[in-house]
């Protein structure tokens, strides 16, 4: 499989980038710091540990995903290695898919590493790991997968710097899903139309933030498993959309 060969090579390259390791170490450090903050607030040590840990995974994951994925395609063009690849029997969609799979694998490795540290901390502090904690890490991973697809999509036509701001911007807007949802029922027509478009068309990153239910064991949502399945499906389909768009653009890109 050509995309897999490209993905494999992408992972090897990405794992050698220092900046990624810095973010990973910061993330792990923040997670490990959870109990320290917990001691400051004994009654809420569990809340602090969980919220800080999940936030650290999200924050580090966010930066790792963006800084990794914005460079995947541009660096090949800059180094001209893309000439050697596309002049071989490699279709452009295979190249985009390979790059995405590679970025996705890097994100997976990082989230998994931080997730393991986080779950170990929980295990250490609370004596057991509630099943929900896995779900939190899991959904963050799918959130980052969607972000990776978005960043790859932008990288087919934007410079890394521009891409950084665009991906970050869309991530912020996408995180305001509760706000955009309320706009869909706005009485001002223009706001309603804009809100509806944003809410239903832009990638909705806010969906994946289920930290609240994890931090408060008593906080229950109806059908959490269905919700998680819907979100995973959403991430997969939306990533596919972004990749197809990326291919449409990259097919026309002069390299």
């Amino acid at each position: 499989m050509v995309p897999l060969a490209i993905a494999r090579q992408t992972v090897r390259e990405a794992l050698r980038r220092r900046v990624m390791w810095i973010f990973l170490i910061c993330g792990v450090f923040l997670i490990a710091l959870g109990p320290v903050f917990g001691f400051l607030s004994p009654k809420d040590s569990q809340t602090v540990l969980r919220s800080l840990g999940l936030a650290a995974i999200l924050l580090a994951g966010l930066f790792i995903t963006i800084v990794t994925c914005i460079y995947l395609i541009p660096v090949e063009i800059e180094r001209r290695t893309i000439y050697t690849i596309l002049s071989k029997p490699v279709q452009r969609f295979e190249f985009v898919l390979g790059k995405f799979l590679g970025g996705f694998a890097v994100v997976f490795i990082n989230i998994a590493a931080m997730g393991i540290v986080f779950l170990l901390m929980i295990r250490f502090q609370e004596g057991k790991v509630p099943a929900d904690m896995y779900k939190g890490v899991f959904l963050t991973f799918f959130q980052m997968m969607l972000l990776a697809a978005l960043t790859i999509f932008f990288s087919t036509f934007a410079t890394p710097v521009l891409n950084f701001f665009m991906s970050f911007g869309i991530f912020i807007v996408g995180n305001l899903s509760s706000v955009t949802e309320s706009l869909t029922t706005s009485r001002v027509k223009a706001t309603q139309v804009a809100g509806t478009l944003i809410h239903y068309l832009l990638p909705n990153f806010g969906n994946f933030n289920i930290q609240n239910t994890l931090i408060h064991p008593t906080q229950e949502i109806t059908n959490p498993d269905v919700f998680i399945r819907q979100n995973i499906l959403y991430a997969l389909i939306y990533s596919a959309v972004l990749l197809i768009l990326a291919v449409i653009i990259f097919d026309r890109r002069e390299v």
């Binding site: 090579q9 800059e78 001209r80 000439y83 050697t84 002049s87 071989k88 029997p89």
Partner: peptide, 15 residues
């Protein structure tokens, strides 16, 4: 046809 081709670009910075 690319199976039968090869290209060495100028000034390539390999991995």
């Amino acid at each position: 046809v690319k199976r039968e081709l090869a290209y060495l670009p100028e000034e390539t910075y390999f991995y």
